[in-house]
Amino acid sequence: PTPPYLKWAESLHSLLDDQDGISLFRTFLRREGCADLLDFWFACSGFRKLEPCDANEEKRLKLARAIYRRYILDTSGVVSRQTKPATKSFIKDCIMKQQIDPATFDQAQTEIQSTMEENTYPSFLKSDIYLEYT
């Protein structure tokens, strides 16, 4: 069977589908000062999984606010810098109007994913952290 670390090189999704891969990628991102990209990506996925039902509404709104405050509002943060202004406005509007759809963060997640696919993921595969691991 293919060792996990070779699968990690196939695609970002293969890497993010493996606990050890995530852990090593996080170590790399932390060193580069942009581990927030990874946490935000997972936060968006976790948010989408929360069922929109009456019992969950307060939790969903609270969580949406938490994600927004932590990653989007701080314009010096790496997630905010890599997210388009229109996407940030859209999320802000959703929260202000308390219209929290499961897809609220989808566009932002796509943009952050592109950033990882184009920059940090290829750099990770060339990094000494990954090469030493293999």
Binding site: F42, G46, K49, K62, L63, A66, I67
Partner: peptide
């Protein structure tokens, strides 16, 4: 009541793959 940080951490963890 969970703090925002706890809620956020729980959300991130819920999206991670389980140990294989």
């Amino acid at each position: 009541i969970d703090s925002e940080d706890d809620l956020l951490q729980e959300c991130i963890t819920s999206a991670m793959p389980k140990k294989k």
